[in-house]
Amino acid sequence: MTPIVSAVKVGKSFGTVQALSDITMDVAAGEVVCLIGPSGSGKTTFLRCINQLERFDSGALFLEGELVGYRRAGDRLHPLAEAQIAQQRRATGMVFQRFNLFPHLTALGNITEGPVQVLRQRPAEAAEHARSLLAQVGLSHKADAYPSQLSGGQQQRVAIARALAMRPRLMLFDEPTSALDPELVGEVLAVMRDLAERGTTMITVTHELSFAREVGHRVIFMDGGRVVETGPARELLSNPQEARTRGFLAAVLS
């Protein structure tokens, strides 16, 4: 079966800084992958390359077998036009660290915006789906609330529903609980756990090691823009093979 994500020697530089080097990995359908590592290790950059908020500049990245962001002409890869990039982005849902809900739209409006404006669904149909997603994240009663009237945890759950509304084949989470007050982290992780149990393919950049251990199928430890170690979640977290992984885990857990 074609992996959902297939990265082959993906690299990315910001000017003279090499943010990503030789990232090679596959993510299978239904797999929950957690990216961990110190800040500046490239895990967020890699996530943003998958949905093309950043453009990788070497190697190749495939989403369900389709080359991301480029088309081949002879022995060169040419960047896709903006419309095609927008088209490819629909396959992935993104949840941001700082939620990034649209403040001028209600919770329901945030969720239906993509389906109605991008997928051209009928508003009634989109609203029906949105209400079922709000129920799924436990916020049926907040459909008409504006983001400013919601707590951080509620905003992040609406943001997850907004991403799910596009029926993505892959969900990307960029430190989804880092901007939350400690008592609100649990409700967001519970929604993510529920998604994982429903068989959603997920890549999560996270510092929540207990979530990675319990929900993650695989953990990838990155440092300096490279994959240092990868393995089944429990195994890697309890018995890391690389010295850098051990150092990082010791620092985080202490």
């Binding site: 949905n51 927008a86 982005r89 629909r90 941001f96 990034n100 403040p103 915006e113 993509g114 991008v118």
Partner: peptide, 27 residues
């Protein structure tokens, strides 16, 4: 308008002009 709004609009598959019209300009 916060830069995150452009990214959020892109992440749901909006083109640049659609995100300007629906997300950025109203704010």
């Amino acid at each position: 308008v916060d830069a995150g709004q452009y990214e959020a609009a892109k992440s749901i598959g909006m083109s640049h002009s659609l995100s300007l019209r629906r997300i950025i300009l109203p704010q």
